[in-house]
């Protein structure tokens, strides 16, 4: 693992204005969607749908606005570790709460 990290052929990938605009309109669309869906009463499902849409938006922001898609492998790898460390312990709290 050590050597390929330092052999940095980082190409300083530049994303064009056009891509940014496409992503931006996608984000606006999803915002509209989440507001619209919230007006329909789905009961329990409302929370999950809202979270799903938000996660789509978050993915767009991370992958394109935050460059993650074009990023150095090391940064991508560390990001996955951080997400796991974020969600697994927080999820484990509910082992307690759901069985009280």
């Amino acid at each position: 693992m050590g050597s390929h990290e330092q052999s940095h052929d980082h190409d300083h990938h530049i994303i064009g204005y056009g891509t940014h605009l496409v992503i931006y309109f996608g984000l606006l669309l999803l915002t509209g969607l989440t507001v619209a869906v919230a007006r329909v009463n789905l009961g329990e499902l409302n929370l999950w749908v809202a979270m799903l849409v938000a996660t789509f938006k978050a993915a767009l922001v991370i992958l394109y606005f935050m460059h993650m898609k074009y990023e150095h492998k090391l940064i991508q790898f560390l990001f996955v570790i951080a997400l796991l460390a974020l969600f697994l312990p927080y999820g484990a709290v509910f082992i307690d709460y759901l069985h009280r």
């Binding site: 989440t34 507001v35 919230a38 409302n46 809202a50 849409v53 938000a54 978050a58 922001v61 935050m66």
Partner: peptide, 22 residues
């Protein structure tokens, strides 16, 4: 810029949780 997108990212979750899940 990355920091600013993170601020945006947090809001993307805050908005539905606080305003819409009503």
């Amino acid at each position: 810029g990355l920091y600013w997108h993170l601020v945006d990212l947090i809001w993307i979750y805050l908005f539905p949780l606080l305003y819409l899940v009503a």
